[in-house]
């Protein structure tokens, strides 16, 4: 698989060098250990939002650092959780006295590393809360699995909670809001091709030219089932059907509809998916009050997309509309 890299083992470090140069002044990139902070952190008295995860999902999370969203992001190696020393340094660096909220995607490694970091930060006198996002309906949520994966809802939680921190809300309220977003969001994705990590150099899984993996995870984890490749309309029926049925979303609901590209699918196709999603929801009496279409939580070069729905109320809508000024999301600023 062709990659624009120098040495595969240097990818994350060199990516961070590029981010630091491209967003100088807006972002500060720390290198020992790796964490990205907004240029004006710490913001006095404001609750600080810190997230992170494996690299390879850009712009998640580093591209969402800035006013109105995250205060810091901790990038791990490719598809590998960041380590507690990163989150500890980030928490110490961005805590303006209002405490720190960790927003964590539900993967075994991420949850354990953030828990260790929270323990270490509390030992240093920092108030830390942690909310785990687990919105992927492709995974059976039971006592016998690691639980649902965190995917698209993470972007929405970071945006909405970031707006709430800018309003000066206290840590407990921001954590509660984050739980609300997590509880009211559901997602599911499909892969048309595998991704290829720079270190492995070959596809993570095999998928025939005429096949798709329904319910795929953002690291190329297998999904619910493998099926023959279908039309955009059929794919939306499958993904949106599973998402709508799970919460459930129903007649009269107002939602934020998020069509997310996995990294290797053109925006053109994402808009085709959005048009189908719009029709699908309209038929069920569900109104798209807000939308987001683009590649925001990616899986390296994987072709495919995910659909996330968030049930909106007035407060969530207002916080979504609030100004945001980050490399990955920007409006009103």
């Amino acid at each position: 698989m062709k990659k624009l890299v120098n040495r595969p083992e240097d990818v994350v470090r060199e990516e961070l060098t590029g981010i630091a140069l491209a967003h100088a002044g807006r972002l500060v990139v720390h290198t020992d250990p790796h964490w990205i902070a907004r240029g004006d952190a710490p913001v006095p008295d404001k609750v600080a939002l810190v997230s992170g995860g494996g690299s390879g999902h850009e712009p998640l999370h580093g591209g969402f650092v800035g006013p109105g969203m995250l205060d810091a992001a901790c990038p791990g190696e490719v598809f590998t959780s960041p380590t507690p020393d990163q989150m500890l340094e980030a928490a110490k660096g961005v805590d303006g006295g209002g405490g720190v909220l960790f927003i964590v995607k539900n993967y075994t490694g991420d949850v354990m590393n953030f828990e260790m970091a929270a323990d270490l930060a509390r030992e240093e006198g920092i108030t830390v809360e942690q909310v785990v996002i687990a919105d992927d309906v492709a995974v059976e949520d039971s006592l016998y699995t690691a639980g649902r994966r965190g995917v698209g809802a993470t972007v929405l939680a970071e945006k909405i909670c970031g707006a709430a921190t800018e309003e000066g809300r206290p840590l407990e309220a921001v954590a509660g809001l984050c739980h609300t977003v997590a509880d009211q969001s559901r997602s599911m994705g499909v892969a048309l091709t595998s991704c290829t990590t720079p270190m492995a150099g070959r596809p993570t899984f095999e998928l025939g030219d005429d096949e798709m993996e329904v319910g795929v995870g953002i690291h190329g984890e297998p999904g619910r089932e493998r099926r023959p490749l279908a039309s955009a309309r059929d794919v939306v029926e499958t993904l949106a059907g599973a998402v709508v049925g799970d919460l459930p979303f129903g007649d009269g609901d107002r939602v934020l509809a998020f069509v997310n590209g996995m990294g290797g699918t053109p925006l053109m196709e994402l808009y085709v998916v959005y048009a189908e999603l719009h029709r699908f929801l309209q038929e069920r009496g569900i109104t798209i009050a807000r939308n987001l279409v683009g590649s925001y939580a990616t899986s390296l070069d994987m072709a495919g997309c995910s659909i996330t729905l968030l049930k909106l109320d007035e407060e969530l809508t207002r916080l979504w509309d609030a100004p945001v000024d980050t490399p990955g999301l920007r409006w009103g600023a």
């Binding site: 250990p33 959780s81 380590t83 507690p84 354990m112 590393n113």
Partner: peptide, 15 residues
């Protein structure tokens, strides 16, 4: 190990 392994193995072997 905690600060270099990452993933789930880092916290587990580190612990």
């Amino acid at each position: 190990l905690v600060s270099t392994v990452g993933g789930a193995a880092g916290p587990l072997y580190g612990t």
